[in-house]
Each structure stands twice: as structure tokens, then as C-alpha cells.
């Protein structure tokens, strides 16, 4: 099977759907001839034209609201928010409008839209362009939250997100854009709410999201040398969350480390840890649940400081060893 990048997979998922469904269109800042800040939409305006690849002014509130209003009236918009940090400026439209309209209206109307947005640190863009704010959105009933970690997952999950009749926040990790994996050429869908076991193992479970899946895989390779067999569960979607796959894995291994890039305090890892603690897996735990997340600090500019602010492979190795060695 051919290999393409995560970025190409996202673009392909959009383009294939737009060829099939006239109601699907994309709007966002600099997504026209510029091709988007990260190049995801490059070539799309040439294929689909400026009516369906809508280059917008720098007006996050209005373009988010325009996406909601057009979704409510029959379109299926994909909104590219240039950096996920800018969700702060679009927040009213996503949290108070998109997420709630259907419920407030007594079940009438629906808001089928996708907000695609690059998240995470590692590019040296500092505090206002490097955050991982997914826990905010996961907190809001009415929204769905997706965090693909591979090109294969990105394509299938984006197809499912576009097909979904609800507002879906689709986080793309910037450092994953250039990563490659096997991706079928034809359209396929990965159901929202289905976790993926990225590596099978028997000694300890790591529940990791987005780029941390890759760091966990690296850590697992090192740990294997020391005879520790790691299982890695990638939830892929935070809302809905595949609790069953996580709980089953922990029941099997009896030990678990939860890792994400977002700040640990109030991060989604707390939710995952709680799900485990409240489940039947609690009785199977041979060690306390361990959480790894970003430090409570804005992402700094200096590369060494930036790296130190979020979990790295050695941190994961250390956490796993502590968990495994717990008596």
C-alpha cells in the first residue's frame, strides 16, 4: 500500500468528500492560493474554486458563526482555524451556539460541521501558538473531539467527522503533519468513539493521545530491551471516548500510565484516569494510575525550555518503570 503524509491524508479526505458532496465546503484564513498556514489546503482552491474554498478575513468569531449558521441551514462546512489557540476567539460560536442549538431547540435543527485546527508545541511558535486545549472542548456537551495520531487515522476519522451530524473539533498535531503511514486511496471511515491499540503488550498500558502515541511507541521500544512489554491505547477520539478498550487493556496489564501533551492540571488525562478508577479495572490495578502531561506553564520559546515543558520519551520511560516496579 502507498504511504502518504498526515497532511496529505487530511487534504485527501476533504477533497474526496468535496468531489462527492456539494454541501461540503471549507472556509478559513489563508486557505486559498496560500494553501493554509501549514499547507493543508494547497491546490484545493484550484480544484474547487473560491466558492467552495472560501478564503476569509481574520475574523474567527464570524467565520465560526458563519460555519454554524450554514450548517444549521443545510451545508456541511469544514472550518480551518489556523492555530488551535485561536479557538479562544471563536469560543462563543462553538460553545454557546454550535454545541447547544439542537438541545436548546428541543431537538430540532442540527449542526454538521468540522473545525480542523493545528495544535501542540514543538515548532518554536511560543505561548500563543503552541497550546493543547482539547480538554476545554471535551468538557462541552454537544461537541465531539477527535485527535488523530497517524495519517491513516486522520483520513478515516476526518471522513467520519464530515459525515457526522454534530459539531466535531478535529485537532491536528503540527509535528505529525509530515509523518507518513499506509493510507488506502479509496475513502474509508473510522467510527468516532473507537480506540485503537497501537501496540499490544502485557505488562503495562499506556493511554496516549496525538503525538504522545509516537513518543510512547519509542519508549516501548526502549522498554522492550529491558523486558517490559508495553501496550499502547490511542483513544483517537476524546468525545465519544471508547472506555471499554481502555478498561479492558488495564484489566489485562494491571498497570497504566496516561500521557498527553496538554497541561496535566485539568487535562483530559484526569478524565481517563477517573474512568479507569471508577471501572471494574480498579480491582485489577497493581499500581496507582500515573498521569503525565505538560507542566503548568505557558509554552516557552527557547527549544530546550519548550521540550522540557511537555512529556518526552525519557519521561514516559521513567513513568512506566515506576509503575511496573511499584509493589
Amino acid at each position: 500500500m502507498r504511504e502518504i503524509t498526515y497532511l496529505e491524508a487530511v487534504r485527501e479526505a476533504m477533497s474526496q468528500e468535496m468531489r462527492k458532496n456539494e454541501d461540503v465546503y471549507i472556509l478559513g484564513e489563508d486557505i486559498g492560493v496560500y494553501g493554509g498556514a501549514f499547507g493543508v489546503t494547497r491546490g484545493m482552491i484550484e480544484e474547487f474554486g473560491p466558492e467552495r474554498v472560501r478564503n476569509t478575513p481574520i475574523s474567527e468569531a464570524a467565520i465560526a458563526g458563519a460555519a454554524v449558521g450554514s450548517a444549521l441551514t443545510g451545508m456541511r462546512p469544514i472550518l480551518e482555524l489556523q492555530f488551535s489557540d485561536f479557538i479562544t476567539i471563536a469560543m462563543d460560536q462553538l460553545v454557546n451556539q454550535a454545541a447547544k442549538l439542537r438541545y436548546m431547540f428541543g431537538g430540532k435543527g442540527k449542526v454538521p460541521m468540522v473545525v480542523r485546527t493545528p495544535a501542540g508545541s514543538g515548532t518554536g511558535a511560543a505561548a500563543q501558538h503552541s497550546q493543547s486545549l482539547e480538554a476545554w472542548m471535551a468538557h462541552i456537551p454537544g461537541l465531539k473531539v477527535v485527535q488523530p495520531s497517524t495519517a491513516y487515522d486522520a483520513k478515516g476519522l476526518l471522513k467520519a467527522a464530515i459525515d457526522d451530524d454534530n459539531p466535531v473539533i478535529f485537532y491536528e498535531h503540527k509535528l505529525l503533519y509530515k509523518t507518513k503511514s499506509h493510507v488506502p486511496e479509496e475513502q474509508y471511515s473510522i467510527p468516532l468513539g473507537k480506540a485503537d491499540i497501537k501496540r499490544e503488550g502485557k505488562d503495562v498500558t499506556i493511554v496516549a493521545t496525538a503525538i504522545m502515541v509516537h513518543k510512547a511507541l519509542e519508549a516501548a521500544k526502549e522498554l522492550e530491551k529491558e523486558g517490559i512489554d508495553v501496550e499502547i491505547v490511542d483513544p483517537r477520539t476524546l468525545v465519544p471516548l471508547d472506555e471499554e478498550t481502555i478498561v479492558e487493556s488495564v484489566k489485562k496489564t494491571g498497570r497504566v500510565v496516561v500521557v498527553h501533551e496538554a497541561v496535566k492540571r485539568g487535562g483530559y488525562g484526569g478524565e481517563i484516569a477517573s474512568v479507569i478508577a471508577e471501572s471494574e479495572a480498579f480491582d485489577y490495578l497493581d499500581a496507582p494510575i500515573k498521569r503525565l502531561g505538560g507542566l503548568p506553564v505557558p509554552i516557552p520559546y527557547n527549544p530546550n525550555l519548550e521540550k522540557a515543558a511537555v512529556p518526552q520519551v525519557p519521561d514516559i520511560i521513567k513513568a512506566v518503570k515506576e509503575t511496573v516496579q511499584f509493589k
Binding site: 467552495r52 468569531a61 467565520i63 458563526g65 458563519a66 449558521g69 441551514t73
Partner: peptide
């Protein structure tokens, strides 16, 4: 002011469709 962008979106549907 929350409904103003929604109106713009609904008008966009009218135009696109």
C-alpha cells in the same frame, strides 16, 4: 451579538445553494 454570525452563515447557504 451571538446570532449575528449565524445569520451570515444562513445567508451563505442561501447563496451557495
Amino acid at each position: 451579538g451571538g446570532g449575528i454570525p449565524l445569520a451570515v452563515g444562513a445567508a451563505l447557504t442561501s447563496k451557495m445553494k
